[in-house]
Amino acid sequence: MALYEELKTKFPEVVKEGFQEVDGEVVVCNREGFLDLIAWLKQEKGFIHLIDLCGVDYLGYKPKTFEERFEVVYHVFNLDERKLLRLKVRVPEEDPWQYSITSLWKEANWFERECFDMFGIVFKGHPDLRRVLMPEDWKGYPLRKDYPLFSEEEDWEPYKVLVEKYKRRG
């Protein structure tokens, strides 16, 4: 918990809470000022390796203890101290956005694109925010919990177009 204490004194307005998990420390942050925090971690504390960036949708999650719907989770690793740190930023459903960290890691570019693709979280300051895995004209965000796993054939857009076409032909 040493790092949490340090972060708490350095960025009292950004850090919300922190706890110890099985695999490392977890620090929950506010959206505002997050960029300064992660830049400081990278430049001063040696967390130079960004392992992962992902989104999580907590719609209807029973053991939930917070209000916001989404969470953006960062995993950063310090090579010298062999320390794994998990940073979490909670994002409300009404304005789903978060600051982009592409200025710090080019690697984050595609991670953020994927997060936008799957959850619809917009990353402010991202140079090229478009879908990665899904087709460009896809509607909806597949990894959201309210997105169905199987959709009815009649709901499929090309099918509707086909039906329309044959109706007009008579």
Binding site: C54, V56, K62, P63
Partner: peptide
Amino acid sequence: SVYVVSDGSSRPWRLRIRTPSFV
């Protein structure tokens, strides 16, 4: 790397896979 979030049921709530090829 695999990041898993559980809600207590037998299905993972979220399973995130960070694959090297993607990066």
